[in-house]
């Protein structure tokens, strides 16, 4: 087993990011889409913290990551409220039902 380097962490971040994007692009359940968002943001966060340890970015990386967590929580709150609102109006959380606006 070799040394755990920066690249290993970055790979984890990349996988999280890609999973998040795919999740957002394929889930029909609105809540599932929001989970995808969380995965994407976490992917970036892993990058930040890894850079914080291994490069001259230093503490800044951790600070940014902390703010991202907070912002993600805020975004999740609004997104969830909007999703619930969607559910109230369409009586389903299936995002494919929202196709009135097109063209």
């Amino acid at each position: 087993m070799g040394e755990v380097g920066l690249n290993a962490y970055l790979m984890v971040g990349a996988v999280l990011f890609v999973c998040g994007v795919v999740c957002m692009a394929t889930k029909r359940n609105g809540i599932g889409v929001l989970m995808g968002v969380e995965l994407v943001l976490n992917g970036a966060n892993v990058n930040f913290v890894a850079f914080s340890r291994y490069t001259s970015l230093g503490l800044d990386g951790q600070t940014v990551a902390l703010f991202v967590i907070v912002l993600a929580a805020a975004e999740a709150a609004v997104a969830l409220a909007i999703a619930l609102n969607f559910y109230n109006n369409h009586l389903t959380i299936d995002v494919d039902r929202g196709n009135e606006l097109q063209g």
Binding site: L34, E75, A79, A83, F86, L101
Partner: peptide
């Protein structure tokens, strides 16, 4: 329509 628009906006924006 309003709720649909908001959902599309928020998901796209978050992505």
């Amino acid at each position: 329509r309003s709720s649909e628009a908001a959902l599309k906006f928020v998901v796209y924006g978050a992505g």
